Amino acid sequence: MNVNFQNLNDGDNLNKDDFYVKFKERLDDVTSFPADYTFKFIYPTSEETMNAIKGIFVKANPKYDYKASKNRKYTSISVQIYALDSDQVIKFYNEVSKINGVIML
């Protein structure tokens, strides 16, 4: 899959690998790991999708927070973990990116 990511600060279109390289640099600049880290995702409401997301984080002792949209068509999920380093954060984003229909915030 060839995905383009928009770098919000300078407008460059980046491929997925380049995006994660820059993202890792920014994470390391702004976060002192180990630290609490919160992931936020939006997905079309589906128990299957929710379970797929939760399955990725199961070994990380996560805390979840959910919120359904007004018409319940979409659900947002926040997943908080104690992340050891930026590589772990990126690994989780990579795994979630494989789930169809999930928007990563």
Rank of each mutant, 00 (worst) to 15 (best):
N51M: 07
K24G: 06
N7S: 12
D36Y: 11
T31V: 15
T49C: 06
V3G: 01
F23Q: 06
K91L: 11
A68H: 10
K98Y: 05
D12V: 11
F5C: 12
A83R: 01
N61F: 09
T49A: 08
V3I: 15
N94H: 15
Y20D: 10
Y20V: 06
R72T: 08
N94T: 14
M104R: 06
D65P: 00
F41W: 02
T38V: 08
K73I: 06
A35K: 08
N94M: 13
E48H: 14
F41K: 02
S76R: 07
D28M: 08
Q6F: 13
K40N: 03
V58D: 07
L84E: 09
D29T: 10
L8W: 11
S32Q: 13
L84T: 12
R26G: 05
V3R: 12
K63H: 04
E25A: 12
I53S: 07
N7I: 03
K59P: 02
L27I: 03
T49I: 15
F19R: 10
P34N: 01
S78M: 12
P44M: 10
V89R: 01
K91M: 15
A83T: 02
Q88S: 11
S86D: 05
L105M: 14
T75L: 05
N51T: 05
I81A: 10
Y20H: 05
I90P: 08
E48R: 11
D17V: 14
V89K: 00
S69A: 04
S32T: 15
P34E: 01
G101F: 08
L14T: 11
A60F: 02
Y20Q: 05
G55H: 02
D12Y: 10
F41V: 09
K70A: 08
D36Q: 08
V89W: 04
K22M: 06
S78H: 09
M1Y: 05
R26W: 11
L105E: 12
F5Q: 03
D65M: 08
D87C: 08
I56V: 13
N2L: 15
Y93V: 01
R72F: 11
A35D: 07
V3S: 03
K73P: 00
G55Y: 01
K67D: 04
S69C: 04
E25F: 06
E95M: 12
D17Y: 15
K22N: 05
G101E: 04
S32N: 15
D18A: 10
Y82P: 06
D18C: 04
K40G: 04
Y43L: 08
N9C: 09
Y74Q: 01
A60G: 02
K67T: 05
K24F: 03
Y43K: 00
I77E: 12
A83K: 00
N2K: 15
D36R: 07
K22C: 04
L105H: 07
F23C: 13
V3K: 12
F33I: 02
E48M: 10
D29Y: 06
K98A: 11
V79D: 03
Y74R: 00
D28L: 09
